[in-house]
Simulated scan of single mutants.
Amino acid sequence: MLDPWLASLSDPLFRLPLLVGLLLAALLPVIGALLMLRDEWLAALGLAHVAAASALLGNALGLPTLIGGTAGALAGGALKTRFEARGNVAYAFMILVGWSATLLIGANTELGERLAHALVEGQLYFAGVSELIAALALIGAALWILPRILPQLLRSRFFPRFEQANALPAWRWHLRMDLLAAASLAIGTLSVGLMGAFALVLIPAWVTFQIAPSWRWTLIGSGLVGVTSYLAAFALALQLDQPFGPMMVAVLVGIAAIMTLLRSWPGSPSAS
């Protein structure tokens, strides 16, 4: 019964896309957990919209979508830090600006409409060496940045006045987090699609926040849920000949629904 699934995952034609998505599926949920810690989970959708719009704009100017999308998302993250915007309101404006720009650019540029549709659904099956290099660079940046800013992010969440009282340069770690989130969402959007990247950031983190006994297990659990869901969605999409992005979202929503049912089941700890 598992043979068709294993065969689809080991198909040489899809090995590179599989690896690119696997790296992103391990990282994006961890970024999602950090964004939920900051009460900024809407960042996933806001930065994804900005990345999609800037990818289209870059394409219209002759730039590769990977460069245009990443540059636009990084600019959005930097501006958010510069104007000290905290919470989901800033990202709500990013959604509106990105959505409007994506549709307008797509409607007025050559191949723009087709590219806009591809960005929404995801282009994972066409991921190549450049996407792999970008994903590896992103993982390397996260491994270097996160251990250095995690203590400060946790402290700013639970002791919000500590930084101000001690005149600490809080913008430094907030900027690093904003730029890392922006780059992750940009590369994720251009690979697994706008809504696929949003689902990978939001749902694994939401699931593990319900059950993880500690912050460390929240990060580990988020990554595990993301990778497991990704592998299942990848195999299902190939076997059923479906677009990957919607399948990824469907699998993650299914996991969230199962978690909700289990927690509401009579006799479960949360139901008592």
Score class of each variant (00 low, 15 high):
Pro160Arg: 07
Phe209Met: 09
Phe234Arg: 03
Asp3Cys: 09
Leu22Glu: 09
Ile211Glu: 12
Val251Asn: 00
Ile220Phe: 06
Ile67Phe: 12
Leu35Ile: 08
Gln239Arg: 10
Ala257Cys: 13
Trp41His: 09
Trp215Phe: 13
Leu132Ala: 14
Arg86Ile: 11
Val253Ala: 14
Trp171Gln: 14
Tyr91His: 06
His174Trp: 11
Leu238Tyr: 02
Gly223Phe: 02
Ala237Glu: 10
Leu136Thr: 00
Phe14Ala: 01
Gly87Leu: 12
Arg38Ile: 03
Leu63Ala: 07
His174Gly: 09
Ile31Leu: 14
Gly196Leu: 02
Val50Ile: 11
Gly193Thr: 00
Pro269Leu: 11
Thr81Met: 13
Leu96His: 05
Ala233His: 00
Ala90Thr: 07
Leu63Thr: 07
Leu35Gln: 15
Trp41Ala: 15
Phe162Gly: 03
Val129Gly: 10
Ile203Ala: 06
Leu63Trp: 03
Ser130Thr: 07
Thr102Ala: 01
Gln242Tyr: 10
Ile211Phe: 14
Leu224Glu: 06
Gly98Met: 05
Leu63Tyr: 03
Ala141Asn: 00
Leu190Met: 11
Leu236Ile: 08
Gly112Met: 04
Pro151Ser: 00
Tyr230Asn: 06
Leu42Val: 15
Pro147Leu: 05
Met247Ser: 14
Ile95Leu: 08
Val201Pro: 01
Ala51Lys: 07
Phe159Gly: 09
Phe234Tyr: 02
Leu19Glu: 02
Phe159Asp: 15
Tyr230Gln: 06
Leu103Lys: 07
Met94Glu: 13
Pro266Asp: 01
Trp171Lys: 11
